[in-house]
Nucleic acid binder design. Structure first.
Lengths: 245, 245
DNA sequence: CGATTACTTGAACCGCTTCAAGTATCGTGG
DNA sequence: CCACGATACTTGAAGCGGTTCAAGTAATCG
């Protein structure tokens, strides 16, 4: 499965960014996966209330964890890019409280929970790295709570852009200071917990301040210093240091 | 250490609520702890940027994970009650992005990271239960994001009350439909990401609707059905089912 | 080229914040 | 046991940030 190995590469890259992953570990991890599937933008990958027997890894495109409310509003609680698990927590939580939707056309690889267990048993350090993966997920949630609760809308969007830039950079999907972030402003509104109209105005405010350019799917950061200051962005929470864990 | 065993009891209760914990496992877990410490309300237990070599468990009182912003605002991202770890994620994240403060007078027990590792090695199922503990923490974050992003303020507060009631109930700290929740409205505002004034008015709105009574430290839920409907509260995310994990 | 989707703009409105004051409540010392 | 200070809670009023409604314009795609 040379093909699958290539698809899993972003995950290996992410883990290698946080601690050394041996060749042996890489082989064990790749061996746990057993196929992939593609989805078109807008399609449901996981439904609220599902009890999956496998976990799914984004290998291309962008997906989002979300919940819909009775009034019709949607809140996205996580954005997954290549190398991110969308439901590794399902391994132990069993029943999922949120759904996952394809925010762009995307491709997803599968790993059975049985295989996750085997990996933990046979390669304890790799098991810890999978735990770490879910801890970073949680760490991002916490930072979103801070940004959502206490930052004005333009700073909140700036925070999202700073974070996504660094996360894309880790998996080698940035080009200088720009990256391909092909989500609509409607989706961005559901991430930020704001209205579409206000997201539009806030993005324009960032543009007018010469902090970013956002044309079509391409986001370019024009002034990282001022953008990250506005967002009060401290990348500690992304856990980007390489050390024994 | 009969005393320490008694103090760890809420943690055992929490875990036992999600899966069977054997006597052997209980002994191993208790044996990992090595002492406790008390804090007065308002004192810092963990500082942002710390690199702890142990994790801390609340055994009495309430603590809160938080971050302070330059404008002076504070956002609380998690509330910990007896039986909750406040920084088990520090075991693998190493550097903590948020501080932890005592929201009431409280007592905390300590477990060295070395001992966490020993527990995982010697009792794999117990190790998974610790992982699960951090996954539930993350699951709560996600639900807070939804409530914060898409619910009006009274419904958001209702959601917090529903959640706290069930979490207190799990560790046996409820009495009929009421529980001791001795936090100030200022703290509640920092949890909800709202202003103190508006929290006050929203609490009064819940009172006027005969959904709750909140006198001093005692919160009583007068109408669970209507309160949980207002909050769109679905307890799935608290992972309260007992099953093999 | 026409239909659909995404983005943009204006204007009225409302939920929440801020400022400012006043009233309970609680702990503590005289 | 009361006086007093501190803290928590409550209320009113003005203002602002963000929403909603309603169009209109620009992309995108068959």
């Amino acid at each position: 499965m040379v093909d699958l190995e290539r698809k899993i590469a972003p995950l290996i890259t992410q883990l290698s960014n946080r601690d050394r992953i041996s060749d042996e570990e890489r082989k064990i991890l790749v061996g746990g996966f057993h196929g992939s599937k593609t989805y078109t933008a807008g399609s449901e990958i996981i439904f609220e209330g599902d009890r999956p027997t496998m976990s799914q890894l984004v290998v291309g495109g962008i997906t989002g964890r979300y919940k819909v409310l009775t009034a019709g509003g949607r809140q996205i609680t996580a954005v997954h890019i290549p190398g991110d698990f969308m439901d590794l927590h399902g391994f132990l939580l069993k029943k999922l409280a949120h759904g996952v939707v394809a925010l762009t056309d995307c491709e997803v690889a599968h790993i059975q929970h049985d295989n996750v267990q085997k990996i933990i048993d046979s390669a304890p350090h790799l098991g810890r790295m999978l735990w770490l993966d879910t801890l970073i997920d949680a760490s991002i949630h916490r930072e979103w709570l801070v940004a959502m609760g206490r930052l004005p809308s333009d700073a909140q969007l700036a925070h999202i852009i700073c974070e996504m830039f660094l996360r894309f950079k880790v998996v080698g999907l940035t080009d200088e200071m720009s990256f391909n972030f092909s989500i609509t402003q409607t989706t961005l509104a559901d991430i930020a917990g704001l209205s579409i109209v206000h997201v539009n105005r806030s993005v324009q405010s960032l543009r007018k301040s010469d902090l970013i350019s956002w044309k079509g799917a391409t986001v370019e950061i024009l002034d990282w210093t001022r953008l990250s200051e506005l967002a009060e962005f401290d990348p500690t929470y992304l856990c980007l240091s390489n050390e024994p864990r």
